[in-house]
């Protein structure tokens, strides 16, 4: 049984590695990810938000709704820890 599992894992890993062959090069400017919205962020961030740090403007302004969700996730994690760990003492 263990041998079968090992073969399956190796096969899946091999397929994943094979999948990476088709991926674009690191930092390739013509890759699909760099052609869609990235140029707009790079060119317009300072004009549109007056923030020199592109990462911050994407995180907090262009993707502000996403970051609100992230903050809520952290808040929920804290409350869940509180409830679980304080509940243990009873």
């Amino acid at each position: 049984m263990k041998a079968i599992a090992l073969i399956v894992v190796c096969l899946a890993g091999g397929l994943l590695v094979y999948g990476t062959v088709d991926m674009p090069d690191w930092g390739d400017p013509t890759s699909p990810a760099s052609l869609h919205v990235s140029p707009r962020y790079i060119e317009k961030t300072v004009d549109e938000t007056a923030v020199p740090n592109m990462v911050t403007s994407v995180l907090a302004d262009y993707r502000g709704y996403d970051t609100l969700g992230e903050t809520t996730v952290i808040f929920t994690a804290g409350i869940a820890c509180l409830l679980l760990l304080r509940g243990m003492k009873k």
Partner: peptide
């Protein structure tokens, strides 16, 4: 345009307060 910068600062402060409090809360618990 500059008010966007102010808005970003405002939410960074909010995120900072939450993250700080959650870190301390998890550690204390």
């Amino acid at each position: 345009i500059q008010s966007r910068s102010i808005g970003i600062f405002g939410i960074e402060v909010g995120v900072g307060i939450t993250v700080m409090a959650v870190m301390v809360s998890i550690f204390l618990n």
